[in-house]
Write a protein that binds this DNA or RNA. Structure first.
Length: 275
DNA sequence: CTTGCCCCCTGCACGC
DNA sequence: TGCGTGCAGGGGGCAA
């Protein structure tokens, strides 16, 4: 489900719910997500600690603790965080519960279990292994530059769309926003990345920030079931130019939007506007 | 090292 | 009503 804008929307909603709160206890469903929930580490480093700050790196939520440890949460495809009353029975697919000393709790619900919960002890919290290979943040304009993307794509044959979704190159861009960014840049998603001119790379980079920021401002895109911490849908999906619009007229030229697979993922583009 | 393929898992829409 | 199929915002392991 969530790409960078959706995770950022969750971060913004989660921060006021948990910052300054002390975790009283943790509960897990016992079912593994992408990896087993590290209950021992959660009890050691999270239970009893105060959450000082909620940050984000790529699609990871980073909950800093006052003992120096770091709680990492990845929402995968269907992960949701929501506040709950501890007296109310967990919902189906609630896999982690963080109970606070003020009588509230936060639950992590993840039907498909592609999410991830990890704990970095204080010694690793500044450089968690899970974040070690990640490329720059696309909203950091000094890092995700045309010069950077141009250099990193030279000699590479994979389609530019697949490369934009590779978090070693740039983080946070998934299937929706890769399609949208390339439409805005007028670049065909199947173009081998290394074939793109400096000017076209520049258009891709220039299109990225505004699209991601507009989505964050709109509360993210809710295609099926994305929800913020209040359970509310976003509305950026109303502004999508190509994603999910196969057969519908291009908003710019009226040509029907195409849908083709790229690396097994549905890829939407305007065959006329994107060359 | 790169690249494509397949898998993890559940839920939903659709056709029959 | 039920069943089979295909698809879904992610990401990692594996083989060639």
């Amino acid at each position: 489900m969530p790409e960078l804008p959706e995770v950022e929307v969750v971060r913004q909603g989660l921060a006021p719910l948990v910052e300054g709160r002390r975790v009283k206890g943790v509960r897990s469903s016992g079912l593994a997500l992408r990896a087993p929930i590290p209950l021992a580490a959660l009890k050691k480093w999270v239970a009893g600690a105060v959450i000082t700050q909620v940050g984000r790196r790529a699609k990871f939520l980073l909950l800093s603790l006052d003992n120096g440890a770091l709680l990492l949460i990845h929402l995968g495809m269907t992960g949701k965080l929501y506040p709950a009353d501890p007296a109310v029975a967990p919902r189906k697919h609630d896999h982690l519960r963080l109970l606070f000393d003020d009588g509230r709790e936060i639950r992590f619900n993840d039907a498909r279990r592609f999410g991830l919960v990890a704990v970095a002890p204080p010694a690793e919290a500044q450089a968690p292994a899970l974040l070690a290979e990640l490329g720059p943040e696309p909203l950091e304009e000094s890092a995700f530059t045309a010069a950077y993307l141009y250099q990193r794509t030279r000699g590479r044959r994979p389609p530019i769309k697949n490369m934009l979704m590779d978090n070693r190159l740039v983080v946070g861009i998934g299937n929706i926003y890769a399609c949208e960014i390339l439409f805005a840049a007028g670049v065909n998603p199947f173009t081998p990345a290394g074939d793109l001119s400096r000017a076209r790379i520049g258009r891709i980079v220039a299109a990225t920030g505004p699209i991601l920021r507009r989505s964050i401002a709109a509360g993210g895109a809710t295609i099926a079931d994305f929800a913020n911490t209040n359970g509310e849908a976003g509305y950026f999906q109303q502004q999508l130019a190509v994603y999910g619009r196969a057969g519908q007229p291009c908003r710019r030229c009226q040509t029907p939007i195409s849908r083709r697979l790229s690396a097994g993922r549905a890829t939407f583009f305007c065959p006329r506007c994107q060359k």
